[in-house]
Nucleic acid binder design. Sequence first.
DNA 1: TCAGTCACTTACGTCGAGGTAAGTTATGGG
DNA 2: CCCATAACTTACCTCGACGTAAGTGACTGA
Lengths: 131, 131
Amino acid sequence: MGASSKIRQLDPAAICRSSDPLAVRELLTKIGDKWTIFVVLSLDLLGGRARFSELERAVPGISQRMLSSTLKNLERDGMVIREVFPEVPPRVEYEMTELGRRLLHPTQGLVDWAKENWEQVREAQSRYDER
Amino acid sequence: MGASSKIRQLDPAAICRSSDPLAVRELLTKIGDKWTIFVVLSLDLLGGRARFSELERAVPGISQRMLSSTLKNLERDGMVIREVFPEVPPRVEYEMTELGRRLLHPTQGLVDWAKENWEQVREAQSRYDER
DNA sequence: TCAGTCACTTACGTCGAGGTAAGTTATGGG
DNA sequence: CCCATAACTTACCTCGACGTAAGTGACTGA
């Protein structure tokens, strides 16, 4: 058996080029949920800082429950900081951290990919379905 | 009211910089599921072409059911091509398309981000949890 | 006194992603 | 005759993501 048969074997830990594969999966799972990207991108478009109700209006279709839990997850992951102002009615502002802002770069790469290739995906799906 | 109050308003369609927001969400949802990235990255590491059982061994923990459905989705989206060889026992090979290979670039950006920033995410989570 | 505001939380129900295990098909080899 | 093999499919179940709707608390202005 030569090297050509060996090269087909794959070290399980080597997926994702030796980084922690589970970290990559967790990250993708997080930003792959229904609302996280929209909230992150909207927060960025709003200048990196906005209050709850602004985000609610900025992300069409999101409910208070989902916005709340999405923001809570982002806060827990260190992507945003939550600041409470002790007023009545209450005011809460969310600000992107440096960590969160850094995530925007690779995310934008996917956004661009979708812009350029999604039509092709749609066509492939149509071809596959009619048959 | 000046421009500073207007700028906080957000055109719903403008999320993701005017590309189709739903396409971006669908894309993220697809590669954000449990197995797709692992399958795609493994297929790439195996030279862009591999048979079912090779992928099964390459992706630790995946079941035949999930590998089968993940590959079917990738095929439907035009990311891989399925080739059947009429032999016994059967042989089926999966090959990445140009479209699929193009997706690797932005995906690698996220992999790199995880490599460099995941430790920081873990720390943020710990800080958040103990409190 | 009462309604309105904001930023939530709680309760409840649905639906689909994903896990486990077993079955299937066709054939060559012992 | 029977088993192994590859690449699946099918049946069944669980659990969590997500939706909807209503409640909450503290204060202000009418």
